[in-house]
Simulated scan of single mutants.
Amino acid sequence: MSSTRPTVVLVHDGCSDATSWFGVIAELHRRGLTAVAAANPLRGLAHDSAYLASVLAGIDGPVVLVGHSYGGAVITEAGAAPNVVSLVYVAAYLPDVGESHHALAARFAPSPLLSGLRRTAFTTNDTDRATELTVPREAYRPFLAADLDPEVAQVLAALQRPVAERVFTDAPTVAAWRTKPSWALVTGADQALPPPLQRFTARRAGAAVLELPEASHAVAVSRPTTVAELIQDAAEAGSAPTA
């Protein structure tokens, strides 16, 4: 008997892009794991989850699905795909069916970042308009990346992609963590996604929890080795025996 090693699919946060996984991917490659950084559209949970599901459908074999922050909501919905064997939440929240980010956040002290987000109108088609959000560059490091070098934080701020405001009010129609094993990394110094919210949703899901008390929201950049080690744990648990 041999085992099939899963492909790791990484889903980034809002106000971010796939390059945030650069260091984690390098570490995964050193461990012999194949990684795909999906381009999260950031237009809304149903739209983003459907896109991710199409990515997953094109991958042969088992998948370990990893989500950062809002990416956690996306993998909660799309993780119902049959080839997903485990879920990893990195500085993320694990919503239940019908539970939006705002509904969850209302149970905890508000994130100091939310009131400072920059709002910009955009056109969704020829007539409809909606709002998208970005983090002001001067706020990026203190709220998202306090444990990074200031120059690196400014590069990340410049690379960020706007996220549609509706991601905060959209809710999943399925919670993949209810049927699939989960791991969660809680960032104890997070100023963007409150650590109590991260802990509550991870423990509610029965996830294996690793907490880094001094890690910021940008933990995938500041602690890529630790993030990769947690993903490796999920990959090894999710390896499927084959003849």
Rank of each mutant, 00 (worst) to 15 (best):
L42V: 04
D17F: 01
P112N: 14
A53G: 10
A105G: 08
A38C: 02
A78T: 02
A26K: 12
L33R: 13
D60H: 11
I25S: 08
A109R: 15
T76I: 06
A103N: 03
G58R: 09
L28K: 04
V84C: 12
Y93T: 12
H47I: 14
D48H: 10
S54G: 13
D48C: 07
E99Y: 09
V11Q: 01
L114T: 14
L56E: 04
T120S: 09
R107I: 04
G58S: 06
L104I: 03
P62A: 15
Y51A: 07
P112Y: 03
P110A: 12
D17C: 02
G32H: 09
L87A: 01
G32A: 08
S20M: 02
G58I: 14
G71F: 07
T7V: 13
T19R: 14
L65G: 15
P41H: 01
S16W: 08
L114M: 15
A80E: 15
L104P: 08
A53I: 03
P95M: 11
I59D: 05
V90H: 00
V66H: 02
H12L: 03
G72L: 08
A50S: 13
L87F: 12
F108T: 13
P110M: 11
G72I: 02
R107C: 10
R43M: 08
L94V: 15
G14M: 09
Y93G: 02
V8M: 05
D17E: 12
V64E: 01
A38Y: 01
A26P: 02
L113E: 13
L28G: 01
G58K: 04
A92Y: 00
L117P: 01
V55Y: 03
T34C: 10
L33A: 09
Y93C: 06
A109T: 14
P110R: 13
L45N: 08
G72A: 11
L56K: 02
E77Y: 08
E99W: 03
V88Y: 03
D48E: 11
L52T: 06
L10A: 04
A92F: 00
A46D: 13
A81Y: 14
H101N: 11
T120W: 06
S54L: 06
I25P: 06
E27C: 06
D13R: 00
T34E: 10
S16A: 14
V24C: 08
P41T: 07
R31P: 05
D48K: 02
L87N: 00
W21N: 02
Y70W: 10
L94D: 06
V88I: 08
V64M: 13
T34H: 09
G67N: 06
R107D: 04
A103R: 03
G79K: 10
G79S: 12
L42Q: 09
A103P: 00
A92S: 15
A105D: 05
Y51S: 09
A91T: 11
P62K: 09
D60S: 15
L56H: 09
H12W: 07
G79I: 13
L114D: 15
D13C: 09
Y93L: 14
A46W: 07
H102N: 13
A35Q: 00
V74F: 01
T7P: 07
G116N: 14
A26D: 01
T7Y: 04
L87E: 00
G72E: 12
P112K: 07
G67R: 00
R43V: 12
